[in-house]
Structures are given as C-alpha cells and as structure tokens.
Amino acid sequence: MHKIPESVLVVVHTEALDVLLIRRADAGTWQSVTGSKDLPGESFLQTAVREVAEETGIDALAPRMRLTDWQLENIYDIYPRWLHRYAPGVTRNTEHVFGLCVPAGTDIHLNPREHTEWRWLPWREAADEVFSPSNAEAILLLPQFQP
C-alpha cells in the first residue's frame, strides 16, 4: 500500500515553549511528531491525534492538553530516498501544521520501531536541531501561536 502524500507536523511544547524532539530510528535525525494520513478520508485533525499517540503515547484530546490547528500547510518535494513509499509519479507532499501544548513533565512513551530517544529543548534550540526545514520554520513560529 502506498503512503498518502498528505501528512501532519505536530509541534509538541510546554507553556514555557520547551519543544519535544524525537530521534528517528531509521535516519538518526531529530524531529517533531510527523506522519501521513492512513486513509484518504482521514482528516488532518484525526491524523494529528493518531500520530501523537503512536509516536509519544500522549492523548492529544485529554484534559490539560491543547491541540491547535495552525492553519498552515507546507508543500515540499519528497526526499528521493523515500519516494519508493509513494505511488509512481508522486513527488510532493502536503504537510498540515498543528501545535500541542502539554503540561511540563508529561510522560513520553516512544514507539521504538520509529524513534529511539526524546528530549525537551527551548524552542530556538529545538529549531536548530531538527533535520527538516519545514519543522524548523514551524518551531520558530511557535511564539506566535501561543495564547
């Protein structure tokens, strides 16, 4: 089954603007929560909630969690090493951006097949650590989306 070229990027953060980064098991790079839709009819919101739960163990809809749709989309070329995951001829992905404010000290439970470690960093440092330019840009926008 081919991946759907529509995904989410969820910047998980605290009110103090510390950002959760997770290290990819396959590439060793740091990132925020990301993931593609499982089905064409799955909404970006449903995808965000599912991916956060799968990758961190956090229930984004639980009390004290604040999931916000930033109404931003990034369209980018899929890295050549991952093109085989998509249907022939698919070369671009649409990424929808969310923020998830969580209480400081929220427990993180990684899926070891996807990520090997996690850490919290102040937002500017987190932006410097991530591999993806769209991820860095989203983290740098965080202060604008904090209520």
Rank of each mutant, 00 (worst) to 15 (best):
V10E: 08
N135K: 05
P5D: 09
V130G: 02
V11G: 03
T29Y: 07
S43E: 05
G89A: 05
A27V: 12
A138C: 02
P112G: 06
A104V: 08
P147L: 06
C101T: 13
T106Y: 10
D69Y: 14
F145S: 01
I78N: 06
N93E: 15
S7E: 13
P80W: 07
T56N: 03
H84K: 14
P122M: 10
W118E: 07
T68V: 15
R85A: 05
H109E: 09
R24I: 00
T29V: 04
M1S: 11
M65R: 14
G89M: 12
E6H: 15
A27P: 02
P63Q: 14
F44M: 15
E54K: 15
T56L: 01
G105I: 07
A60P: 00
Q31R: 10
V102K: 06
P40C: 03
S36T: 12
S43A: 04
H2S: 00
L21F: 09
Q146V: 13
W123C: 01
W30D: 02
T47M: 04
H96S: 03
Y76A: 07
E137G: 01
D38M: 14
L67K: 13
V10A: 05
W82C: 00
G105W: 14
G89F: 13
A25F: 06
N135C: 14
Q144L: 15
S36L: 05
A136D: 01
L61Q: 15
Q31A: 08
S7L: 04
D59F: 11
L39R: 15
P143G: 04
A62Q: 12
A127S: 11
A25K: 15
P5T: 04
T106G: 00
S134T: 10
V8F: 07
I4E: 01
E95S: 04
L72Q: 14
S134E: 10
E137N: 06
H109K: 13
T14V: 04
L110M: 09
S132Q: 10
T91I: 08
I108P: 01
P63R: 15
Q31E: 09
M1G: 11
R66F: 05
V130I: 01
A126Y: 03
Q146A: 11
E54L: 12
E55W: 03
R81T: 05
D128T: 07
W30R: 01
P112Y: 10
A25M: 08
D38H: 14
G89D: 09
L20M: 08
Y76N: 04
W82I: 01
L17H: 09
E95W: 11
C101G: 03
L39P: 02
V97G: 06
L110I: 08
K3Q: 05
V8W: 14
E54H: 14
S132K: 04
P40M: 10
N135V: 06
